[in-house]
Design a protein around this nucleic acid. Sequence first.
DNA 1: GCCGTTTTCGGCCCGACTGTTTTCAGTCG
Length: 591
Amino acid sequence: MKNAKIAEIFETIAGLLEMKGEKIFTVRAYQRAARTIERLPVELDQLVAANADLREIPGIGKAISEKIVEMVGTSQLRYYDSLRAEFPEGILELMHVPGLGPKLTMRAWKELGVTNLDQLESSIHEGTLESLPRMGKKAAENILRHIRFARSEASRIPIARAMPVTETLIADLRAKCASIKTLLAGGSLRRFEETVGDIDLICTSTEPNEVLNALVDMPAVVEVLGHGDTKASVILEDGIQVDLRVVDESHLGALLVYFTGNKQHNIQLRDHANKLGLSINEYGITEIETGEVEEYGDEESLYRRLGLQFIPVELRQGVWEIDAAREASLPDLVTEKDLRGDLHLHTDWSDGRDPLELMVAAARDRGLEYFAITDHSVGRGIANGLSPERIRSQNAELRRIADTMDGPRVLLGTEMDIRADGSLDFPDEVLADLDWVVASVHSAMDQDSVTITERIIKAMRNPHVSAIGHPSTRRIGERQPIDADFEALFRAAADTGTAMEINSNPERMDLKDTHVYRARELGVPLVIDTDAHTVEAMENVRYGVAIARRGWCAPRHIINTMPSAEFMAYLGLPKQDRVWALSENAQPGSH
DNA sequence: GCCGTTTTCGGCCCGACTGTTTTCAGTCG
């Protein structure tokens, strides 16, 4: 059984226990375990097979580790089965209706016999739901509106969709409200999660009401969920929820901390503060004994007050970053300005939009020291892939442009298909003339795990294949990743000296963060590319950098942070020796 | 259920908002 399934079962157990009225701390323990397992960089079944002690994982103790072992060994969990048997089928979808929590769900079931969405809807129309204690007409009507939401299985929004909406929203609010000092996205968007549940906006202003009113009055708002003195929640016409929180400038640091970390991070941070005799809220830190309140205008000083290193936003996931910050062992994460090259770019020779000259000029203007033009290979007929003849004429053209240009080093490259049988789209003699070869899977993505894993490893064994492009081939919210054994891929990549790409396209974000984390631990050479098909798409590098940071990568883990001369020397080495060259100064951390 | 430079037992994050109530329970993030 895989981590995702195990996490889902613990999440369900938490929900059922909550309805049952179990101690809230037991519920939270299961929730915490679910979150941790979701983000674990290794599969639990492999840990169990290796006889590892699962209780070393934070939030996992005796009871939960025993349940994991049972699930891995027998593909089921007796405790879970018997717990589910106590509830009618479909009751969980009731609890997931916004506004219906565990208490109301239980009362609706026990007192009204409501066990699914249809019956809930009828009970509201018939007026029975509002007869429950502490319910009323208005509360019932609110729930009715939210049933529609629950039915549509309100899925999380890909960051590629949420980011432009947010940027427009911020620009609009700024234009309307002169009182705004700071306005930026918090929450999962600021942490660069691949999907977001809603858009959290953090604001400081001398006139909170001006900003809150401006949000609820925006034409794109179809529903106001809440509107108070410091916060407002709305739903936009495209179904995205926006939460806005406004405080005074003097509280900005505390608000940023409060509104950026995920739930687990915030809980652990406040727990850590409590042990120091301090209490954190969105306005500052309170000395519990004296009641004295300290204000924080920036995040750095707040973390410092807690005896912690500053924790970069991408790491605030409630895993082990607070422990690392206490020991001052957080890595010095890679930044956008550490990157000196982009090794995956397309032009209108294949399926890019812009001509070679424009892409080359844009790469130069971005200050890159080196870059590779990597149009598709002939097998991508639909993408106008290049034949060996065309790739030769493109390279002649590229050399001509490079000669007239002062500055960056231009690498001759390709993004070549790995065919279904693991053979490559170009013969070795064509590849031998190229400086940089990205090999990618673009077809037969539904092969079984063994087949597709061997297929990619076979490509890695070719001495000319420099990197594997967008290794999982997923498109967030649209296409599932291939069913490869990534642990095996990473070991093969480290073994053969093949780089694994961190593709910055926000629809891909591939490798993803937890894979990057594991690949780094195994000493895999990593390369951050944009895979830009237009000049503008080179901006996407920020997404790639964010994934690397979420995988705890320092510059030394990313090969295109090397200066040009060093990078060319690296490429000049036989592949096997490249790993060695990188790992010489690489010290993959214990975390 | 987990966990320990205050604990192997007794704690466990914190506040805003709503709709129902006349002081607060439930939900949410």
